[in-house]
Amino acid sequence: MGVCRSSKMFIHAVRVVSSMSDQNLEIKLKLFRDLGFSEYEILEMFRKTPPVFAVSERKLKKVMEVLLATGKYDVSCIFNSPTSFICSVENKLKPRIQVLSILESRNLIEKWPSLATITRMTEISFFEKFVYPFLNEVGEVYMVNNTITAKRSRKLKDRIKKEP
């Protein structure tokens, strides 16, 4: 599928392909086509992020549905950030999208961040950039919907209490 043997992704590509039957691989490729990706885009996603092909069909559809429903991201954005397929929909994507929607509705942000930014930011970084400055508007929503580890959650809560 075009992954160079010297690439860091080669071992991941081998693992993904070897874990599927030819029939399952064809089903996965058909699903990507049905989701709106071209043959070129499918191969490029495989080369850049082979683990995406190990994600279940149900999750691939759910991620597409959630991201396209925002109206902020399209198939080309998802193609440019295929790691979004690996993210948890309930624990990462939906809470972040909800925070950004609230910020936008209250004119607190002018432009949504790129999909790559949303999916690659750590919880702490997202909190510091998009939640903490607007704590009164989105703090409670973020804390309720976000399932950060107990340790990180305590750190964030302690930080909020220390700030004036």
Rank of each mutant, 00 (worst) to 15 (best):
R47Q: 12
K28D: 02
L35N: 08
P51E: 02
K48R: 15
Q23V: 13
L31P: 02
V52N: 09
M20D: 06
S19M: 05
D34G: 01
L31D: 05
Q23F: 12
N24V: 03
F37H: 08
P50Q: 14
F46I: 00
S21K: 10
S19W: 05
M45E: 02
V17G: 07
I42H: 10
M20Q: 13
M45D: 02
Y40L: 13
E41M: 15
T49I: 08
Q23S: 13
L31Y: 05
V52P: 04
P51T: 07
T49R: 08
D22I: 13
T49C: 14
M20S: 06
V52T: 14
I27Q: 07
L29T: 00
S38P: 09
T49Y: 07
K28N: 06
K48C: 11
L29R: 05
E39F: 04
K28C: 10
R47S: 11
S21H: 04
L31H: 06
I42P: 09
D22S: 14
D22A: 14
I42T: 15
N24T: 02
E26K: 09
N24I: 03
L31M: 09
K48F: 10
L35V: 06
E44K: 15
P51I: 01
L31G: 04
G36Q: 01
M20E: 07
F37R: 05
F46S: 04
E44Q: 12
S19K: 03
K28G: 00
F37P: 05
L31I: 06
R33C: 02
E26N: 07
K48Q: 12
I42N: 06
V52G: 05
F32H: 10
S19P: 13
E39T: 11
F37Q: 06
L35G: 08
K30N: 07
K48L: 14
T49M: 11
D22W: 09
I42A: 05
Y40V: 13
N24A: 10
E26A: 07
E39S: 13
R33N: 03
E26I: 05
R33G: 01
M45L: 04
M45Y: 06
I42Y: 10
F37D: 04
D22E: 15
T49P: 00
V17S: 12
Q23R: 11
L31T: 09
S18L: 11
D34I: 02
P51V: 01
G36N: 03
L25V: 02
K30H: 00
L35I: 07
S21G: 13
S18M: 11
L43D: 14
K28Y: 00
M20V: 04
T49H: 08
P50F: 15
L29W: 00
S19H: 02
K48M: 12
M45S: 05
F32D: 03
D34E: 12
L43N: 15
T49A: 10
L43I: 15
V17I: 15
L25C: 09
T49G: 01
I27D: 04
K48A: 14
F37G: 02
L25W: 11
I42W: 10
S21P: 00
L25N: 02
S38L: 08
G36K: 04
S19Q: 08
F32C: 08
Y40S: 13
L31E: 12
I27M: 01
S19V: 05
E44L: 11
M45A: 01
L43G: 14
D34H: 07
E41D: 12
S21L: 08
S21F: 09
E39I: 08
K28I: 07
